[in-house]
Design a protein around this nucleic acid. Structure first.
Length: 571
RNA sequence: CGGUGAUUAGCGCAGCUUGGUAGCGCACUUGGUUUGGGUCCAAGGGGUCGCAAGUUCGAAUCUUGCAUCACCGACCA
């Protein structure tokens, strides 16, 4: 490729509405342009990277036994009604009508289509197990698209679906694809971790996410410091504190605490640590249809945060988790939100494991402007349940039993699920088993965000000058930068000769043949992040030499001209 | 959807308080200059100031409504 006949589209200045590094560099390096919120055009350089990621994913999926196919992006509503997700998926599902007023959706994922298809195509257990995949555009009407292509509405995804007759068989394929995902992220050259995950709206039993570690990530990942345990903080279990709860030593004592609402107010007022305070949150409970929903009190230690995913799974708590309104709080606890407490509250009380270990603690008195201190379980609060409802914090013991947890930020680039029979049952996907009986299929599904990987790779590989691509996904492997080619026939001839030789050797090379000053070329090529540069100037040609620079290193080195092609090929 | 802020040339911004000729830097075109890290000089092209209504002799500027975009919260590859 020649820059003079290409669309580089680099920008000197950072567009004002790009916040994260990857978005800034993707715009500046001419990889993408926004069309509307969450919708992007991929420019030539960006598309090259996207295709490289796609091909690595395709190769590893094929190697793991996947079979590629392609399903439509527009899907009929009745498939979604059949699975029940027409109601369940919510507004993120973009619905539309055709000219005949028939309803369709823009596919956010393809369980319905694939399962329906295979309910027709599969007849016998002899055809199983089967793993199908596609690499295709998805649409999710995100509430708030952000971070460029990292959370866009339209994006490129690899989605795979596996079909089995037994859980055991599903687990084998799940393991195989888990390994395939590791191979993919290894080849991409990314620092990533597979972590235990919540199954979310897709449903099912077991699940792992693959996270690229980066400060700009939207998820918190908990790691054990002495085992390979890793879990999304949504999922990571907070163990009960060890040992017995200390006995009560104080009397229950009601104290007037005017203008004391937050945990920090209470700590300051009583001069105690947040870990000695119990905070009480009221959420909506599961009520019968038509009846006013009851509230449920969730009790946590003052220094801990509620884990909403864990809480909404508890029997009696409405899902999705909904906090009580001020009016509901007033009605249930006779006080404002700053003075709620678990003592004699008159509703279901669920206490976090760590909070349940407290003795002589401080809590709201269910009377505006009053708190108790010296509160103790059993003596003061008898009717309660204990559950794990908090987020783990750094320093907590690992649920695996070894080591303590640390927390890092991650970008979710892959997610694999064991779905079980959910979709197969809904869509009537069954085959005859070896006893000649009809049997519902068991499924797994496996996603990778191709376009998100491009952004994640930049988040993890950049410096002040721009992107530093991992070699496997660089848009070009090497750039030839001739110094003042228009003034020196020698420089021009050498550059053109090397360009031809590299092309002939099958190397992805771009030559910067613009009539630009050297500084401009260096800046542009560093911004775009091409891993290897060959710099050709008068000063080295007398010795039949050129310079080589690696994007990751500060210093240049000297190469003999006739060694360049071999040298680059070994990189 | 709630909160916050923004919208003036392709990009980054000023002008608005106090209404009166639409500006600066980068980029682009032309000429010259320079040539190993975003040269310098000069001359140019490009804007219905997000849209609509209102106030006014006159609106980028004041008022109202709407739209779009970004950031913080709940969702997810």
């Amino acid at each position: 490729m020649r820059t003079s006949q290409y669309l580089l589209s680099t920008l000197k200045e950072t567009p004002a509405n790009a916040e994260v590094i990857s978005h800034q560099f993707m715009l500046r390096a001419g990889l993408v342009r926004a069309v509307a919120s969450g919708l992007y055009t991929w420019l030539p350089t960006g598309l090259k990277v996207l295709k490289k990621v796609e091909n690595i994913v395709r190769e590893e999926m094929d190697r793991a036994g996947g079979i590629e196919m392609l399903m439509p992006m527009v899907q009929p509503a009745d498939l979604w009604q059949e699975s029940g997700r027409w109601e369940d998926y919510g507004p993120e599902l973009l619905r539309l009508k055709d000219r005949h007023n028939r309803s369709f959706v823009l596919g956010p994922t393809h369980e319905e289509v694939i399962t329906k298809l295979l309910s027709f195509e599969l007849n016998s257990y002899k055809q199983l197990p089967l793993t199908m995949y596609q690499i295709q555009t998805k649409f999710r009407d995100e509430i708030r698209p952000r971070f460029g292509v990292m959370r866009s509405r339209e994006f490129l995804m690899k989605d795979a679906y596996s079909f089995h007759l037994s859980q055991q068989c599903l687990e084998q394929t799940y393991q195989k694809l888990h390994q395939a995902y590791c191979n993919i992220f290894d080849r991409l050259g990314l620092d990533y971790r597979p972590v235990l995950a919540d199954t979310g709206s897709i449903g099912g039993d077991a699940s792992h996410e693959f996270h690229v570690l980066a400060e700009s990530g939207e998820d918190d990942i908990a790691f054990s410091d002495s085992s390979d345990y890793a879990a999304n903080i949504e999922k990571a279990e907070a163990l009960a504190p060890s040992g017995e709860r200390a006995p009560a030593t104080m009397e229950l004592n009601k104290v007037a605490t005017p203008d004391t609402h937050s945990i920090s107010d209470v700590c300051e007022f009583f001069n105690i640590a947040a870990s000695q305070v119990a905070k009480t949150l009221l959420v909506i409970g599961e009520g019968e249809e038509g009846v006013t929903a009851p509230v449920v009190a969730l009790v946590l230690r003052g220094d801990h945060d509620l884990n909403e995913i864990k809480a909404e799974k508890i029997d009696g708590v409405a899902s999705p988790l909904t906090f009580a309104s001020d009016a509901q709080i007033e009605a249930a606890a006779n006080c404002n939100a700053g003075s709620i407490g678990p003592i004699a509250i008159g509703c279901k009380v669920i206490v976090d494991r760590s909070a349940a270990h407290l003795n002589d603690f401080t809590c709201g008195a269910n009377e505006s402007g009053y708190h108790y201190n010296g509160a103790n379980f059993e003596r003061d609060i008898s009717d309660y349940e204990v559950a794990d409802i908090r987020n783990i914090v750094a320093g907590d013991p690992s649920p695996c039993g070894q080591g303590t947890l640390t927390i890092k930020r991650g970008i979710e680039v892959g997610h694999i699920f064991q779905l079980g029979e959910k979709y197969a049952k809904a869509m009537g996907a069954a085959v005859l088993n070896d006893n000649g009986k009809n049997q519902i299929l068991t499924m797994g599904c496996y996603g990778i965000g191709i376009s998100r990987i491009v952004a994640a790779a930049i988040e993890q590989n950049n410096d002040a000058n721009g992107i530093i691509w991992p070699d496997a996904i660089a848009p070009f492997k090497v750039v030839i930068i001739p110094m003042n080619m228009h003034k020196s026939a020698r420089v021009k001839d050498t550059a053109e000769q090397l360009y031809s030789e590299l092309l002939a050797a099958g190397v992805e090379v771009i030559i910067d043949d613009r009539k630009e000053r050297p500084g401009v070329m260096f800046k542009d090529m560093e911004l775009i992040g091409i891993p290897h540069s060959i710099i050709i100037g008068e000063r080295n040609l007398d010795n039949k030499e050129v310079e080589y620079k690696n994007r990751r290193e500060a210093d240049k080195s000297i190469l003999k001209i006739d060694e360049v092609v071999e040298f680059i090929k070994t990189k």
